[in-house]
């Protein structure tokens, strides 16, 4: 069968959602942000809620998320996205509100906003992309940088004794009663993308049902910051990030798993 006979509109089984704009993504080659963006937008498209959704972009690599997500969006100050989302959601309780934040934004400078939005049980979704480094500013140590991991501000490796431990933010907030759903996923392999998308769908369904806060962490790569080729960075992520940040649901239907 000729390829020309396969490539016909009626045979199309996958293309990017129309809720992703045609702007070329500003992310480095192989960066998981693009995939994470796309599956969030796919969920919003599949639920038919694009007209009722307001996203909050952070400061970090995804500061320009609003260039790529074709929905109403607000760009928040560094770390403040959960407070900004709170302000929107409290006044528009029937709209869907989500934040999209990196590890520096959510787990360092925005720790207070994150914890208190979670503790109040704000009925929002938090998408938390954790790549263990500050990508946009050039590869500095993040709150989630692994012990021994090199960055431009831990050039000899993160010394736990003086620089502190990498913080497991999703487990931490899962302990708060306001958090209804907490899950950690990845987007580097097809099976992971499917699971991550399922978790994001669950999070938005929870918001629809007014269940409280849902957080989906996506452990991702930063090949530029980690100074590796994209495929190599994904292998490194599996071997080093996943043991410390294990994938899977952490809290489902208000119940912490394994407790």
């Amino acid at each position: 069968m000729d390829i020309k006979d396969i490539i016909k509109p009626e045979n199309k089984v996958y293309s990017k959602t129309s809720l992703m704009t045609d702007n070329a993504l500003s992310y480095c080659p192989g960066c998981g942000h693009g995939t994470a963006h796309r599956i969030v937008m796919e969920v919003i498209e599949e639920m038919g809620i694009a007209h009722d959704t307001i996203g909050v972009a952070p400061v970090g690599c995804s500061v320009l998320a609003y260039d790529f997500m074709d929905i109403d969006m607000t760009q928040a100050a560094h770390g403040r996205a959960p407070a900004v989302a709170t302000g929107i959601k409290r006044l528009w309780p029937d709209k869907f509100v989500f934040t999209y934040q990196g590890d520096g934004d959510l787990a360092a400078i925005g720790t207070a906003e994150t914890i208190h939005a979670c503790n109040r049980g704000e009925n929002i979704v938090i998408i938390f992309v954790n790549n263990g480094i500050y990508g946009m500013t050039g590869g500095q140590m993040a709150p989630t940088t692994l012990g021994g991991m090199k960055s431009s501000t831990s050039p000899f490796g993160r010394d736990i004794g003086t620089m502190g431990n990498p913080i497991k933010m999703t487990e931490l907030v899962a302990n708060l009663p306001g958090v209804y759903f907490a899950s950690r996923q990845a987007v580097h392999k097809p099976s992971n993308v499917r699971k991550a998308k399922k978790a994001i769908r669950q999070a938005f369904e929870n918001q629809k049902e007014k269940k409280g806060l849902s957080i989906v962490e996506i452990v991702s790569n930063c090949n530029s910051g980690w100074k590796m080729a994209p495929v190599q960075s994904n292998i490194w992520m599996e071997e080093n990030m996943f043991p410390y940040y294990p994938l899977g649901d952490i809290k489902v239907d208000d119940v912490i798993l394994g407790k």
Partner: peptide, 27 residues
């Protein structure tokens, strides 16, 4: 597609493509 005859249209490539640049067709 270096080996187009092997493609089954499973869309795995498109699922993991960070830039969303792959369209998949299947018959």
């Amino acid at each position: 597609m270096e080996n187009p005859e092997n493609c089954t249209g499973c869309a795995n490539c498109a699922l993991v493509c960070p830039d969303g640049v792959i369209e998949v067709y299947r018959v």
